[in-house]
Write a protein that binds this DNA or RNA. Structure first.
Lengths: 341, 341
DNA sequence: TCATATAGGGATAACGTTTGCACAATGTAA
DNA sequence: TTACATTGTGCAAACGTTATCCCTATATGA
């Protein structure tokens, strides 16, 4: 059996209250006693049982991190490790730990969240995606637990704390970037339409075209679900159009990698024949061939701020549900080229 | 305040023991009472406090997953999401949940493990890497907690349960594959030498050369740490050798992607000028340009089996510390070519 | 001298469960 | 009728902490 506070108390010849106070470095205990108790703790290799502590303190020092359900194609993205890195960084700093959702299907995921929250296993929750009619978010609101969404909520925007990029603007910037290079026929290739990011970016793309009096052509709007064959198909459709696009906006760099390959397969060169700009600026953008001009959404920072916001919400549950917009920046590399008129 | 078992008991006019028994579907309770209590539970929206349960049952139904420390470059790999997917799958099935390590440095990581294990927050631990002189593993052994390593332990192989590929053999296969295509000058580019995988693969590579009476040339052995510039540098060094290699074995497909770009940068084509085979067969291999011939190490399966083994160890702590070798398979794509003599 | 702070630490009631034991009510066998 | 299982339920002791209240010296001030 593990060594408990009682064992320490007995061996140190003090009460368990004293040991507990030493643990929390209470000023009510003399330095002498502290030193003595600490020595015994050391000797016995004692470590507090955090479940017991959670039980009485009604707090777990743990946040629940909800990823997309694991059957989703999007979990392959380099987004996950990087955002986790940002979250870890903060959690480590504030001495919080992470409980990860394991749901395979959306329903599993929901049950998982239920268990975490109702089971009092977490003090707050961080949802790494945003989509319409998400039962998870509805439940979180109702449960009153502190939580933040990484992404823009689809409703109750004022009641929910969130951390996001301004994806509409970012997409406008990206599109504008291509337009400035002289491109007029620009395609948009998104990923999973279920999630809000994709919609926001599409909206930005369209607004930018409108603002520049360019025609919005439905045939230029596609999506790929991180699947090679699908990518080949989409590129085929796009490039065999009577008037094919000369540039593309991609919402993810893994998809951009696919597009790069698909274009090469039909003998088209980037950026000579087609310019490509993508979102995320993850490692992939930096190392592909050609290297991708990419909208840096600062994934680490997103995770960092999101985690920080959750912890702040936990510590001040009645504080304003503030939302944070992380700036984006276009990182120019080798995948875009000026149109020769 | 949250609704507790007492509230349910009161409202249902039964004792808390009865409610508890209904919760665990004990045969000692009549169907009638069960139905009634369940209805009350539903009405009140009651859900057991899992901390309290953990405390009395001395079990958490949670496993701790230890990644490499988050400052490590390797966390960018597509390995993480995929292995997490495998782990999630199993955890979900067995109703376990995941607590993730958050350590940024190696020391942080160690403290994190200490906290998890000593704090009784997990029933078992899954270590996602293997390296020499790892205090984490030493501690896990000493603490007697069930744990498994994903990778080959550097010592105490018989006392530690692990799940791994046969990396030596896999590397031999990969090398042999190139040799069969007629290559005689083969380079090896690993990643972080700190971890055991890299060493095993290097060993396999060298053994294969030996077995084929090919010279092992130190200048052909390099490594890249998921960094573009480093990759460019390494490729430069390699290809400006008096006798440059005609083929390469890479230990990671993200690194292979870098190599692809670096080669292209100096005007060399894959597979025409240089053949490339890599490990992991993650999404990247499938979508790069050219698509990479890759050793499929079955990442999902690794995660799946590792998690399953931990849970088995938890349920039967005295069972043999069995180890599992997940088979590998070369997936042929477009990055290797027969040498024209 | 007495009254009164004050510092240091002990007892004990929570926290929300599970579970071994006791026990009442009912059924069954002799 | 008595004795004894059987079935269903309640009581209360754990689990390992924290936190509130309380007590006892000793020091301080008048």
């Amino acid at each position: 059996m593990a060594v408990t506070i009682k064992d320490v108390a007995k061996k140190a010849n003090v009460s368990i209250s004293t040991v507990s106070r030493v643990l929390s470095d209470s000023p009510k205990i003399s330095e002498k006693t502290k030193k003595h108790v600490r020595k015994v703790i050391e000797e016995l290799g004692y470590h507090a049982n955090l479940n017991a502590r959670s039980l009485v303190q009604q707090t777990t020092k743990t946040i629940g991190v909800i990823m997309k359900h694991s059957a989703s194609e999007a979990v392959h993205t380099t987004f996950i490790p990087e955002v986790l890195r940002g979250i870890s960084y903060v959690c480590n700093k504030y001495e919080y730990s992470i409980r990860l959702s394991t749901g395979e299907s959306e329903e599993d995921l929901f049950q998982d969240v239920l268990k975490m929250v109702n089971g009092k296993q977490v003090d707050g929750v961080l949802v790494l995606y945003s989509k319409k009619d998400d039962p998870v978010v509805d439940y979180l609101i109702q449960s009153q637990i502190p939580f933040v969404i990484l992404g823009k909520p689809t409703k109750d925007v004022n009641k929910i704390a969130y951390v996001d990029n301004d994806n509409i603007h970012a997409a406008m910037d990206a599109t504008q970037y291509l337009i400035k290079l002289g491109h007029k026929r620009i395609a948009f290739i998104g990923d999973d339409k279920k999630y809000e990011v994709t919609n926001a970016r599409l909206a930005g793309f369209q607004q930018s075209l409108l603002a520049n009096q360019l025609e919005i052509c439905d045939e230029y709007i596609k999506n790929i679900n991180y699947n090679y064959d699908e990518g080949v198909q989409v590129i085929h459709e796009l490039m065999s159009l009577p008037v094919p696009p000369t540039a593309m906006v991609l919402t993810d760099d893994l998809n951009a990698l696919i597009v790069l390959s698909a274009l090469s397969k039909i003998g088209l060169k980037v950026p000579e024949d087609v310019s490509v700009i993508c979102f995320n600026n993850s490692t992939i953008s930096r190392v592909s061939n050609p290297r991708l001009t990419s909208v840096d959404i600062q994934i680490f920072q997103l995770g960092y701020e999101a985690a920080k916001t959750v912890i702040e919400q936990i510590n001040e549950p009645n504080a304003l549900k503030k939302s944070l917009i992380i700036p984006t920046k276009i990182v120019e590399r080798d995948s875009c080229k000026k149109m020769i008129p």
